[in-house]
Nucleic acid binder design. Structure first.
Lengths: 202, 202
DNA sequence: CGATAATAACCAAGCGCTTGCTTGCTTAAT
DNA sequence: ATTAAGCAAGCAAGCGCTTGGTTATTATCG
């Protein structure tokens, strides 16, 4: 172990740096259009050096996806901890999800687009991570349906919800007319069928 | 002109064949992951021959996108022609859109993901085509808002709608438990806030 | 009408470059 | 002395695209 805590911990974990850079580039340009040289350069390495940390470019993608999903799941778990009202919990889920998607420098859920670039057995791993991510969502939707706040929590609903949220990564601009809070508000309003509080004074 | 109508018009337009094959492959594997050799092979040509019809791989993408959007717009125009009730028109818009997306062999709106693979000036062209495509949608949403069927037709709504519809190309399987009609039904129901007619007996 | 010129639509071959990845070596911390 | 972490250099394969020729169809003209 050469530098577990060098002098002023400047690079305690280059592996994580690689993952963050890779995730950002994969989202920006797509997996196939991103070269391993791009990734290396983004963290100040030479072209072959990332392969000391990762066996292949695909492994870089897989790890970035799993890390991103797991980080998002953790953020969500913290956000909804102790919140019993399903309506409020839905709002927090949406708001936190849009936060990871649009505010962080590593918008992980967008990487789900690139699942097709993985081998079949690798897909199973990220499918499992995605299932864990979806768990609190479906639970909340079920509660909302049980209490009559929405008509049904049947299959297409959750997928529609993720669709509209994830697609926003394609068009949302932070310097545009909408804040992330407003976005979350209208998304929830669309689902629950009442007017969006954040948008009512626009 | 060598074969304007050979014997039994077997290949009246190889250019269109190339476009269809390219569109399908671009959607399946992504633009960057699709090689011009793949496209050539898909129509039974040698690797260099597509460049007789198209100047570059990017031009192939641009033309495929515009063609797809224009075809979708035409399908929609036919579907909603003469329909005055905005509620019914929305349903037809959604149903037709999902049709081009999930049923046709050339699911054109999915290509919008690949806009980033184009040069800036090329993007303007497809942005114009996409605007034409969106026109009847926004008009219908405005009508629905004016008659109080939905709370607001403000900016995020149309984008959310396209998001949830387009994302369905990622998960929908024709052999799954849902028909396209059911999908369209629940999408419309989600927007209008009443129960989905196609799903009420599931 | 038949010979010839012109052209559309390709093929065969390959060029220059980029790609993911490997290999052997160096450096520095343990 | 061992080992984690990285560099320098490069290999083989694949990439988009070009070039020069080939074939079959069509237009032109005496």
């Amino acid at each position: 172990m050469p530098r577990r805590k060098a002098e002023a911990g400047l690079e305690p974990n280059r592996r994580a740096e690689l993952l963050r850079a890779a995730a950002r580039l994969f989202v920006e340009k797509g997996f196939a259009a991103t070269t391993t040289r791009d990734i290396a350069e983004a963290v100040g390495m030479r072209s072959g050096s990332p392969f000391y940390h990762f066996r292949s470019k695909q492994e870089l993608l897989k790890e970035a996806m799993i890390d991103g999903l797991e980080a998002g799941r953790a953020r969500i778990a913290v956000a909804i901890a102790g919140v019993t009202d399903p309506e409020q919990r839905l709002h927090l889920l949406v708001r936190t999800h849009l936060g990871t998607l649009l505010e962080g420098d590593c918008n992980s859920p967008m990487l789900l687009n690139e699942t097709r670039s993985l081998e079949v057995n690798e897909r199973a791993e990220i499918a499992a991570a995605f299932d864990r991510y979806q768990e609190p969502w479906q639970a909340t939707l079920d509660e909302l349906a049980a209490s009559g706040k929405i008509r049904s929590a049947a299959p297409p609903l959750r997928l529609f919800l993720f669709g509209m949220l994830n697609w926003s990564g394609h068009w949302y601009r932070p310097d545009g007319p909408l804040t992330v809070d407003q976005l979350a508000g209208s998304a929830v309003a669309m689902l629950l069928g009442h007017s969006a509080p954040e948008l009512s004074r626009a």
